[in-house]
């Protein structure tokens, strides 16, 4: 549904733009709209790339660790998963930002290409937090955490992604819902395909 309210008329953001990655991750998790409106242009895009890379690195390594603990795979498999995850976050997620950028521009959004990449990457801040916590539980307590923490972290990122896209497309809720569904499905399929290949 196209919203007639422009970004300039939307309620003002309450968050000060920040270059601090931790502050940016938390803002994207709790108030993505404010992060998009005030913070993305001030935030280095390559740092956001690092955040999504680490997010998927910590997620994928948990998949490897789960299989290593049950003796199904050797330690090298864990390392392969880590490398795959880092690459996935550094290549696939920015690619999503690249693909949604023309759509944002078509909807008269003002985000630059680098900001669109940052939007996609920073949406996975929640995945990074879940990934770090899951990795701690996996290494310290020996739990199987790939689904409970890894996949759940990816799910938690869908909310910020949807709200970010809605903000970037000037309040188009339906487009945000459709794009988030496509992005979410693409990530699930890509993850499954990588598991199959590796």
């Amino acid at each position: 549904m196209q919203d007639s309210t422009s970004l300039n008329q939307l309620p003002p953001s309450t968050t000060v733009p920040s270059k601090n990655p931790i502050s940016m991750i938390l803002t994207m998790m709790m108030n993505p709209k404010a992060a998009i409106e005030s913070g993305l242009s001030h935030f280095p895009w390559f740092v956001s790339l690092l955040i999504s890379s680490l997010a998927f690195g910590t997620f994928f390594i948990q998949t490897g660790l789960d299989l290593y603990k049950t003796g199904q795979e050797p330690l090298t498999y864990v390392l392969i998963q880590l490398v795959l995850g880092l690459a996935f976050g550094a290549i696939v997620i920015p690619l999503i930002g690249l693909l949604i950028w023309p759509i944002i521009r078509l909807k008269k959004g003002t985000l630059k290409l680098t900001e669109s990449i940052s939007l996609a990457c920073l949406s996975y801040g929640a995945t990074l937090i879940y990934g770090i916590v899951g990795l701690c539980f996996s290494l310290l307590l020996g739990w199987k955490t790939a689904l409970a923490f890894g996949a759940t972290g990816v799910l938690w990122s869908l909310g910020p992604l949807m709200i970010s896209l809605r903000t970037a497309t000037k309040g188009d809720t339906v487009l945000a819902v459709v794009l988030t569904t496509l992005v979410g499905a693409a990530i699930l399929f890509a993850w499954q395909a990588l598991q199959y290949i590796s």
Binding site: L147, L158, M162, V177, T181, G184
Partner: peptide
């Protein structure tokens, strides 16, 4: 409406991938 992507992806993960999430 924000429930729709979650419903679709839940269907995909349960019926296609066989996860219980």
């Amino acid at each position: 409406l924000f429930i729709l992507p979650f419903a679709f992806l839940a269907g995909l993960s349960t019926l296609w991938f066989g996860w219980t999430l």
